[in-house]
Design a protein around this nucleic acid. Structure first.
Lengths: 102, 102
DNA sequence: TTGAAATATGTCAAAAGCGACATATTTTTA
DNA sequence: TAAAAATATGTCGCTTTTGACATATTTCAA
């Protein structure tokens, strides 16, 4: 019975995750990419906060606008991985640190 | 004297590397980004070869053209990190494998 | 609270990236 | 070597991403 319950729970959880993916017609590769992008945007936000910078201050360092940085940190669809990673490097994040989030 | 030579050699090598960077007006962050992109493009080429695929065959799997894939593998300026990483995931490369090249 | 600072969202014109096609070059095979 | 296969390069419409600006919403200190 315990075993049975555990299996049900797992199955349910998989169904919930799978439904979004399936509904949007996303492949496993799509999912990995989205997760990667989200993880990087989170690292960007965390990095800025560790450096005690407002979005405005950090945006200036990055030669961009506050609104753009807000979108970067939100993992907005209008933001590329290129921009995210360039921004991280510009804030001084090392390749090693970056590798850790993959 | 030995020490002297070693320093000269290092200084020279730094100057050579630095000159390209300086000539193009690239920041340290720019350099890191370019190196990252190159490393990823190399991984893409290596992955395709390990799977014994021609560029044409791999391009079909990626729903793109042979010419586009050639540019990806060359780290061409017209290719984004997004496209490179999506392609890697589509060829089955894991996040862990990808992290290793950073 | 409430006013100020910080962050988020919407829109736009310009720039960059996209797939596809043609074609050139290099590599492999017979 | 010569032909064939594979890879690289140039170009072009179309789409996406860009920075910038305006403005809305949230957070936080007085």
């Amino acid at each position: 019975m315990k075993k049975q319950k555990a299996e049900n729970k797992k199955a349910q959880s998989e169904w919930v995750e799978g439904s979004v993916q399936d509904f949007l017609g996303l492949s496993a590769a799509d999912m990995e990419f989205i997760e990667t992008k989200l993880a990087i945007s989170r690292l960007l936000k965390a990095t800025r906060r560790q450096q005690k910078l407002t979005q405005q201050a950090a945006a200036s360092k990055l030669h961009t606008s506050q609104s753009r940085l807000a979108k970067m940190e939100a993992g907005d669809a209008s933001v590329s991985l290129d921009l995210l990673i360039k921004s991280l490097y510009s804030l001084g994040v090392s390749r090693k640190k970056l590798a850790a989030i993959f």
